[in-house]
Design a protein around this nucleic acid. Structure first.
Length: 567
RNA sequence: UGGGGGAUCGUCCAAUGGCAGGACUACGGACUCUGACUCCGUCAAUCCAGGUUCGAAUCCUGGUCCCUCAGCCA
């Protein structure tokens, strides 16, 4: 294991280490327990990296367990997507693919045991009545009139609940704990409810389903999980988690630990809000490259390593926090820099004619595919009289600190020649449509024999050889760091109107003509891009901008514009 | 107003009674055939008030602020 992939310690790892040192366990077992009711997002990635990472580093195992106790919201489509995402992230649960629904029979037996012990009862109050009896945060609840039913009656009723004799909502099984408990979770929590709904795995075998609190800890115990790691909002549930384990004859005794869930600036993470973005067509589906879902990140061009490294860098703690998305972008660039082959592509083409370059001539120039890793090899790039450069790389009236092409100025065309702008051609609207330039034949390859320097090297493509491509420029989805609170309750109020820019007629070098879907490249000086895995066509590829390069000039330019120095 | 948690650079995470440290961001510089990368540097924090101690981010007392819980969701 290299230093780069070694996860830093955190309070949960310290607990595991201490427990192991004390001989509490022979082998640590964790679990990642998603409910298959939606797609995984980068917050889940944090949990996955934590759970699988601990198992890996302490010679333990991590189970994948689907918490499928509520069939009304769950679908096989989600379990398949979740498995694909965990696998993509690089984690392996081997043969330990479990489902809470696998334990329905055992869970039922546990419930019967509680009834026999006088620790659970069938309540026939309505949901509204139960709520009314629960009390409030500051007032104790009241006992249900059904709380003192006999064991026999409870056994009979519960068996008939299972047998399907009752309508949904007519009865529930409740734990008999304490209606005056200051922790509301302990005020006789519901264990089972009647739901005549087909389950994606058990079909119609059951019409009663266990609640999360009842199922979760017992499932952990059945599997032999040692450290059950979940997010902070379950802290209040821990006494209940423990109550079931303390009151039932369980084979193993897991412990629950809670950490703070991930919040990322300029994005939303709740399933409800992500669903809304999808349903209202604000994004293009769960795998829209702007989504913080794993599938969205994948389509955007993230690598599993970038996501994992990010998850290590953010750490694990108990305080609520909001991680700056800049850290995610840093992790991304850090990884892509090492693995993306370089190419030249012009997003907004500006035609350049090299007046002293023969019309019928064309030559091939050698270019490195990676600036520091020779293993990437080289390629040949065609050069000819008519070229395209980036519109942003020319200013007729260059401001201070603008180093690129301008009238009378010389720059280098990457891997090619030094050129000087001699004339500017405009259309009737006064827009620059073409540049006339001259090249210095002595600078082939990019270096001047006389040693003269230029301030800038720009990218280009040969007009006749370039391939057309569509490019989608993705930006953050929201314009406010915290969309949850910024929009006055309406998180959609601060959507970034420029989160997607579609470009057509981009010109890329011919080496990219048959690029494979999903391929990752860097367009030099612009950013990292990936060939879209869905929308590429035989006529031309479609690229998604994964992330820009760091761009100090963009910052300067913005400041200049803000000051009104330039238009 | 009950219970359960949490407060450390702008952000995230460390420091487990002994020099408040790292990363990101920002800013400055070096290098550069990518205004990238890399390298160097700078700015920058212990919620407040008391107390214990030779010594407190850490322990004690009192406050303040934030999160969380009243699903037959997870």
């Amino acid at each position: 294991m290299t230093a780069k992939t070694e996860a830093p310690s955190n309070f949960i790892r310290e607990i595991v280490k201490t427990d192991l040192a004390a001989g509490k366990h022979t082998r640590v077992m964790t679990r990642f327990p998603p409910e298959p009711n939606g797609y995984l997002h980068i917050g889940h990635a944090k949990s996955i990296c934590l759970n699988f990472g601990i198992a890996r580093d302490f010679n333990g195992v991590c189970n994948l367990r689907f918490d499928d106790t509520n069939p009304t919201k769950e679908e096989v489509e989600y379990v398949e997507a979740i498995k694909a995402d965990v696998r993509w992230l690089g984690f392996d649960w081997e043969d330990r693919e479990y489902y809470a629904s696998n334990y329905f029979e055992q869970l039922y037996d546990f419930a019967v045991q509680l009834i026999r012990d006088g620790k659970a009862y069938v309540d026939s109050l309505s949901a509204d009545e139960i709520r009314a009896h629960r009390g409030t945060l500051t007032e104790a609840g009241k006992n249900s009139p059904f709380r003192e039913r006999s064991v026999e009656e409870n056994l009979d009723l519960f068996a008939r609940m299972r047998a399907g004799e009752f309508e949904d909502g007519t009865h529930v099984l409740r734990a008999k704990i304490d209606m005056a408990a200051p922790n509301i979770n302990l005020r006789d929590p519901t264990l089972y409810r009647i739901r005549r709904v087909s389950h994606h795995r058990t079909g119609d075998a059951w019409c009663i389903y266990p609640m999360y609190d009842f199922a979760h800890g017992l499932s952990d115990s059945i599997e032999g999980v040692t450290h059950s790691i979940c997010t902070l909002e379950f802290e209040n549930n821990r006494p209940l988690y423990d109550w079931f384990l303390d009151n039932l004859p369980v084979a193993s005794r897991p412990r629950q630990y809670e950490f703070a869930r991930l919040n990322l600036s300029y994005t939303v993470m709740s399933k409800r809000k992500l669903l809304k973005l999808v349903q209202e067509g604000i994004v293009d589906g769960w795998d829209d490259p702007r989504m913080p879902t794993i599938s969205g990140l994948r389509r955007r061009g993230f690598t599993p390593e970038a996501v994992r490294n990010f998850c290590e860098r953010i750490g694990v703690a108990k305080r609520d926090s909001m991680v700056d998305i800049a850290l995610l972008e840093y992790s991304l660039r850090d990884d892509l820099n090492d693995r993306a082959p370089r190419f030249m592509g012009v997003l907004n083409p500006l035609r350049v004619v090299i007046e002293n370059y023969p019309e019928d001539q064309h030559e091939e120039l050698e270019a490195r595919n990676h600036p520091t890793d020779p293993g990437f090899g080289t390629r040949m790039v065609p050069f000819s009289r008519v070229l395209y450069i980036e519109q942003d790389d020319f200013r007729e009236d260059p401001p201070k600190k603008f180093f690129r092409l301008a009238p009378g100025r010389e720059v280098r065309l990457r891997y090619a020649y030094l050129i000087t702008c001699t004339d500017v051609i405009k259309n009737d609207a006064g827009e620059v449509v073409e540049l006339r330039c001259t090249y210095d034949p002595a600078t082939r390859g990019g270096n001047a024999p006389d040693g003269r320097k230029v301030k800038s090297t720009i990218h280009w493509v040969a007009a006749a050889h370039a391939v057309d491509a569509d490019v989608r420029l993705y930006d953050r989805l929201f314009s406010e760091a915290d969309p949850e609170t910024a929009g006055d309750g309406d998180f959609k109020a601060c959507l970034n109107p420029k989160s997607l820019t579609r470009l057509k007629g981009c010109r890329i070098e011919p080496a990219l003509a048959g690029v494979e879907p999903g391929a990752i490249v860097q367009f030099e000086r612009l950013g990292y891009f990936c060939a879209d895995s869905k929308d590429g066509t035989p006529e031309g590829p479609v690229f998604n901008r994964t992330v820009t390069l760091r761009d100090p000039w963009a910052k300067i330019d913005k400041q200049l514009k803000a000051k009104g120095i330039i238009g």
